[in-house]
Design a protein around this nucleic acid. Structure first.
Length: 552
RNA sequence: GCGCCUGUAGCUCAGCUGGAUAGAGCAGCGGACUUCUAAUCCGCAGGCCGGGUGUUCGAAUCACCCCAGGCGCACCA
């Protein structure tokens, strides 16, 4: 509907320029918005204000001129008024809202869908937790965000892939193996030393016991045993991670092994490539990449003096591989503690001629857990932390996802476990789901009363005349543009707020007016209205990866 | 010291990229179930939008400078 207004305004401006009502100037950037205050119309634009400077005329005068010459052949606009400092407020005819409701009901699951993505191949890489321990809350936040972004990009016609990068080489998996080995030895010799940087969690003990039952470690020497345990421990952890994610309704398309970068020779190729670009140099016995010439504040080591490659090497190689796989755009979701890596990775990619905005990195801020009014301190080293699985088992997938998704990822998140555990009104996710369940309940009631919906709803829509009813349709009308904005801003949290508002509008309406009453036509009209709300709520919940229960 | 993020009601957070009277949930107080689900609704109260300067018709929003908190600043992984 905004587009129709924009078209009307454009036509009107052209006319005004042509006929000399206004000075001919380049079209300024203006917005068409949905005002909060119903007195300000269904839509409002600041067009006159943005024109004021160039026109050397007051905004209100310009608004007056525009309104007087408005080109509205389809009789779309009921009235246009000047408000405030020079806003133009539009009220559209009620038929527009009836059409919109029809549109929602016709499209059903597809309402809000668009084809902006044009099947463009994009990848979102997220979670990518080290396979050395269970997923914790921070991973959960990233999982919820990444998965929901994927769902929304998909809804917008992109060809989206979810990828999990597995850090299966290097020091940390080795420490995992050593930790398990030590716990295994301790089974028979409690005084056997535990590595100072080992993983303390109870799961290591469990792994040791489990693996020891399946294999005979006794015949191996220490190194071989640790190698075996490293591999088995890693596989086992990965299996658990996959399972926890699946339970969290997150399913990846690709699991990419860091080790493949080595075995395929990609890493060595990457280094050669960097050298070819003249970006490589040697200093103090190490190999460096000249990232400083692409915005990094210093150059970075890619191969250490001891001959080992740094993480930076695999990072570059991995991202070049993503590029070669043909993704037009890549979004990474990283913990906030990785922010220092963004410039250097981008610098290395830019050296290969990859555009700066090809890669977007979303940094997730910390999750703090609160229980009984106090912060639950978490630390992986000590093994004292709440896992995603525990939290999900405790409060349910819907509640956990909703809380993670209801905050902008740039803000640190306080997760109050007591609040989320409650299955009552105080839990925010139920508010939205309840609206859906309520509507289903109304339809069950309608079936009992033998009220069915006619094929062609148009004749009965005129029964919808209340402000609250039109307000509900207006709210539904916002959904498609909201989806577009979420994609361009990468801000899915806005969907949770939108759904809460829509549900709130419905709850208020429901409390004030009866949907099923004596007047059959009115009942049918209100059922159509409720159906529209139900569709939008369900679509929204599904994009968030949440269930839409029919009963609660 | 440098970089990124954050600062809005007692608490947790929105605020649609510069618009009209700054919103919601929780907590507090007071109300509404013989009626489609009270997991709901209605009302009251609660604010120097961290502080300052600037940009302009107009600033919670943009710029700069402070203050406070978080996270990074490795030939660690």
């Amino acid at each position: 509907m905004k587009q129709k207004i924009a078209k009307i305004l454009n036509n009107t401006l052209n006319l005004c320029f042509r006929e000399g009502y206004l000075r001919k100037v380049p079209l300024p950037e203006f917005v068409i918005e949905v005002p909060n205050n119903p007195d300000h119309g269904h839509f409002a634009t600041n067009l006159a204000m943005t024109l004021a400077g160039k026109q050397k005329n007051s905004p209100r005068n310009i608004a007056e001129i525009i309104i007087r010459h408005l080109i509205d052949n389809d009789h779309f606009i009921l009235k246009a008024e000047i408000g405030g400092a020079g806003f133009i407020n539009f009220f559209v005819t009620i038929e527009q809202w009836y059409d919109l409701l029809s549109h929602v009901i016709t499209l059903k699951d597809d309402y809000g869908h668009n084809s902006l993505g044009k099947k463009e191949k994009i990848m979102i890489e997220f979670v990518s937790a080290n396979p050395t321990g269970p997923l914790h809350l921070g991973h959960g936040r990233g999982a919820a965000l990444g998965d929901t972004l994927c769902r929304i990009f998909d809804f917008c016609g992109y060809d989206v892939r979810r990828e999990f990068y597995i850090n299966d080489t290097g020091q940390q998996v080795k420490i995992l193996g050593e930790s398990i080995y030590s716990r295994w030895r301790q089974l028979s010799d409690p005084s056997y030393p535990f590595p100072s940087d080992g993983y303390q969690g109870d799961y290591i003990q469990e792994l040791a016991t489990e693996i020891a039952q399946k294999t005979t470690l006794e015949s191996l020497d220490v190194h071989d045993a640790i190698d075996l345990l490293t591999k088995m421990g890693k596989d086992k952890m990965l299996e658990e991670i996959k399972e926890d994610l699946a339970n969290f309704r997150v399913n990846f398309d690709f699991w990419y092994n860091e080790s493949d970068l080595y075995s395929s020779g990609k890493i060595e190729n990457t280094i050669k490539l960097i050298e070819k670009r003249g970006m490589l140099f040697e200093k103090d016995g190490a190999l460096w990449v000249k990232t400083s010439s692409f915005g990094d504040d210093k150059d970075r080591v890619i191969r250490k003096k001891d001959g080992n490659l740094t993480y930076f090497a695999t990072d570059i190689s991995y991202h070049l591989d993503k590029w070669e796989r043909g993704f037009k755009r890549v979004i990474n979701i990283w913990g906030a503690d990785h922010h220092g890596y963004i410039t250097r990775v981008k610098a290395a990619l830019m050296a290969e001629g990859i555009p700066k905005d090809w890669l977007d990195v979303l940094l997730i801020q910390l999750v703090k857990l609160w229980e009984a009014g106090a912060e639950v301190k978490m630390s992986k080293r000590s093994g004292r932390y709440v896992t995603l699985k525990e939290l999900v088992d405790d409060v349910g997938v819907d509640a956990v996802r909703f809380v993670f998704l209801s905050k902008d990822h740039t803000s640190p998140l306080d997760f109050d476990i007591d609040l989320v555990k409650r299955k009552d009104s105080e839990n925010p996710v139920y508010y939205v789901q309840y609206a859906h369940a309520r509507i289903c309940s109304v339809f069950r009631k309608a079936a009992i009363e033998n009220i069915s919906l006619p094929e062609n709803p148009a004749p009965i829509y005129e029964k919808l005349v209340l402000d609250e009813e039109i307000a509900l349709i207006r709210k539904m009308a916002e959904f498609p543009s909201l989806i577009e904005e979420i994609v361009s801003e990468l801000a899915p949290h806005r969907l949770t707020y939108y759904l809460a508002e829509l549900a709130g509008n419905f709850h208020r309406y429901y409390n004030k007016h009866r949907i099923i009453g004596k007047d059959k036509k009115l009942s049918q009209a209100r059922l159509f209205l409720s159906l529209g709300v139900k569709i939008v709520i369900k679509n929204g919940l599904s994009l968030l990866g949440l269930s839409a229960p029919e009963k609660m």
